[in-house]
Simulated assay, not measured.
Amino acid sequence: MSTESEPGGMRLDPSLSTIMSERRRLTNLAYRLLGSLADAEDVVQETYARWYTLSQEQREGIKSPGGWLTKVAGRICLDQLGSARARRERYVGEWIPEPLPDRAEWSGGRPGGATTDPADRVTLDESVTMAFLVLLDAMTPAERVAFILHDVFGYPFAEVAEIVGRTPGACRQLASAARRRLRASEVSAARTSRQAALVRDFKLAWEAKDIKALIDLLDPDATGVADGGGLASAAPRPVVGNEQIARYLVAVTATADDLTIVERTVNGQPGLVVERDGVTAVVIAFEVAGDRIRNFWAVANPEKLRSWTTG
């Protein structure tokens, strides 16, 4: 059997297609662990770089290349999570995970555009809703890694232990602690149809600057969090209470005639995008509890909106 070669007689690595087929899964894992698509892409690149620093003999001795790549990516993420809290202390204002568009309706910043964005490699499900990611961010790094690897990606605790650097029993306890946090927060995805209706009503009330209607749509103890990263205007602290949020939202748009609010899917759920002169300026994700909006997260930091603005 002949071996396929590149021009100039360079033989192709027979395992290349197998190795590269892991990229999507690694990106999905790293995004859930870090809450940043940009950081996830960096982790995947670093993981592949480490693979190719191995000798051919070392690579051939690895029984499960996919398992090896996952272990390396998981450890890189764990290290990044450990230093993230120090970086957050220097972050201007509130930090919110990077929102992702739905490739079916939004790609390259244009509805109906070609699907070339890295976000296309992230599977949007209940483990990437903004409410879920925000809660994950409150966990310890070890809890987050153990929970995501075991409960979301199905890795046995024996393999998780190799990544986290603890015993399988300790990893089981970490994942259990993470589940208790989830139950205590009562984070659950609302029916898409119900959330879509509430978000649409919210949009209409906001456009009409109808403070009473906004108050009625928001839970009395609702919280609104904005992330400008020091690069865009945003409330420096969370706004709490339905009336306070309603008045804040109306004030934000009261003097802005160049803004357009459109319905978009954000991290797999109905959300809103605020456009300025046709360019995405803010992406808003929602959490619904019962018949009202309990939380929303507005990302205005342009560095976190590249999936929405670049073609």
Rank of each mutant, 00 (worst) to 15 (best):
Y248S: 08
A256N: 14
T260E: 15
P238M: 02
A251F: 04
V239M: 03
V240L: 05
T260D: 14
R264H: 10
V250P: 05
G268F: 01
V250Y: 09
V266D: 09
R237P: 00
V274I: 13
V240E: 03
P270L: 00
R247W: 07
G271N: 04
I245G: 08
V250S: 05
P270I: 03
E275L: 13
E243D: 13
V274H: 08
V250Q: 01
Q244T: 15
V274M: 09
V239C: 02
D258N: 12
P270S: 05
R247P: 03
E243K: 12
G268R: 00
E275Q: 10
R264Q: 14
G241T: 08
E263K: 02
R237T: 09
R237W: 07
V240F: 12
V266R: 02
Q244K: 15
V240K: 10
V252N: 07
A256S: 11
I245M: 11
E263A: 04
D258S: 09
V262W: 07
L259R: 10
Q269L: 04
N267K: 05
D257C: 01
G241E: 06
R237C: 08
V252K: 00
I261A: 07
A256C: 07
R247S: 09
Y248Q: 11
N267P: 01
V273R: 15
N267A: 07
I261W: 13
A254L: 11
V240I: 15
L272G: 12
T253S: 08
T265R: 02
Y248R: 13
T265N: 02
A254K: 04
D258K: 02
Y248D: 09
I245N: 13
R247C: 01
R247K: 13
E263Y: 01
V239T: 14
R237Y: 11
R247T: 09
R237G: 08
L249R: 08
D257E: 12
T255D: 15
P238H: 05
V239P: 00
V239E: 02
L249D: 12
R237N: 09
A251V: 00
N242H: 14
G271H: 03
G268S: 00
L249P: 07
G271A: 01
T255Y: 11
R264P: 08
V239A: 02
I245Q: 12
I261R: 07
I261M: 14
Q269I: 00
R237L: 15
G268L: 05
V252Y: 10
N267T: 04
T265Q: 06
V250G: 03
P270R: 04
V250H: 04
Q244L: 11
D257F: 08
G271P: 01
N242T: 01
G241I: 10
V266H: 01
N242S: 14
V240R: 09
D258L: 00
P238T: 00
A246G: 09
L249Y: 03
V239S: 03
V240Y: 08
L259Q: 10
L259P: 07
T255M: 14
A254E: 06
V273S: 15
L272R: 13
I245E: 09
T253F: 14
A254W: 06
E243T: 13
